[in-house]
């Protein structure tokens, strides 16, 4: 009987030696992404299908520029500013990116009771101007750089920022200054932070997966100093625009309209929270492309092929944008 016990004991050892694999795929970087947006499975399948990017060495040496145009469809001086921003971008292809934020500091008025605020009326949606270009984070940006910014000179549209680089403590300026500001940055071309991105879009779920690599080139900066912001931008929206002289341009084309922040944070995600590998920082995003804008008042729907994402790195202390890249949604 003793021998039988020995036999069973050794058999038990053999049984214990079986391997059970719960997840057959090699470990992935931890990620809190919404995998329900990936129709092919989950994180492991996503990786096994080669969708998780492996970034090559970043060969970019140029610092790109962000122009944030604070505008409004009832702001009759705004088309001129928008035109100027587009002109600068067209003159510097791949180097200057424009975003039109239909907001301003006066919008952020907690006492606003629904009556049109004075100054510019971009949230005013009635009559011909039914379309509401606003969204929460856009309003927060307007408020932050307008009402909350110390001694803000941003009191009316059109106004704008060029890579949020401050002069005399003020990042906002009139559109007539944007070209010079952009040229100064482009000429200096001080690339402090480099960026790379890759993305996948799945139409069946409207799921967008964005992967960003951040490389800090300026060794005076640390991840604690920086944050990564992601803007969802919609282009070429044909909607009325108010022009000087009381002219309603019914088929005006609104370019590069800021629609959302992928992570719901207008200040973005701190780089110190990013995953670090070999001295570089990685951030991953999932975003369900909405069917329509946040405040939809005229049955506008979002089309993926008419949208893109702008990714930029801001200095958390100065708000300066050190670099920006564009990623398509396709």
């Amino acid at each position: 009987m003793k021998k039988i016990l020995y036999f069973l004991f050794f058999s038990g050892l053999l049984v214990a030696s079986c391997d059970k694999v719960e997840n057959p795929y090699p470990n992935l970087p931890s990620s809190d992404l919404d995998w329900s947006l990936y129709p092919g499975g989950d994180s492991a399948t996503y990786a096994s299908n080669g969708l998780w990017p492996s970034f090559a060495a970043n060969t970019n040496t140029n610092r790109n520029v962000l122009i944030e145009d604070f505008t409004g469809h009832l702001c009759f001086n705004c088309p001129a500013a928008s035109y100027e921003a587009e002109q600068i971008a067209d003159a510097n292809p791949g180097r200057v990116y424009v975003v039109a934020n239909h907001t301003g500091p006066q919008i952020y008025d907690p006492n606003w009771n629904g009556n049109p605020p004075s100054g510019f009326n971009q949230v005013y949606t009635s009559g011909l101007y039914k379309h509401n270009f606003c969204f929460d984070e856009g309003l927060q940006i307007g408020s932050y750089f307008g009402a909350e910014w110390p001694s803000s000179n941003f009191f009316a549209n059109p106004s704008g920022m060029v890579s949020r680089k401050a002069q005399n403590g003020q990042p906002a300026s009139a559109y007539t200054e944007w070209s010079n500001k952009a040229s100064t940055i482009l000429t200096a071309n001080e690339l402090k932070v480099n960026l790379q991105s890759a993305s996948n879009y799945f139409p069946s779920t409207r799921g967008y997966f964005l992967h960003v690599e951040v490389d800090i080139l300026d060794n005076t900066l640390t991840p604690d100093d920086l944050a990564v912001v992601t803007f969802l931008v919609e282009d070429s929206i044909v909607r009325p625009q108010y022009f000087p002289g009381g002219v309603d341009s019914v088929n005006y084309v609104h370019h590069d309209v800021l629609r959302d922040c992928l992570d719901g944070r207008f200040k973005g995600r701190d780089l110190s929270d990013a995953r670090e590998e070999n001295g570089k920082y990685y951030l991953d995003y999932t975003y369900k492309l909405p069917d329509e804008p946040q405040y939809n008042t005229d049955n506008h729907s979002f089309e993926a092929n008419n949208m893109h994402v702008l990714i930029f790195v801001r200095d958390k202390n100065t708000e300066e944008v050190y670099h920006i890249i564009k990623e398509k949604i396709e």
Partner: peptide, 10 residues
């Protein structure tokens, strides 16, 4: 490399 295979199969 792309899969974690059970080396001991019972």
């Amino acid at each position: 490399d792309d899969l974690i295979l059970p080396e001991n199969v019972g």
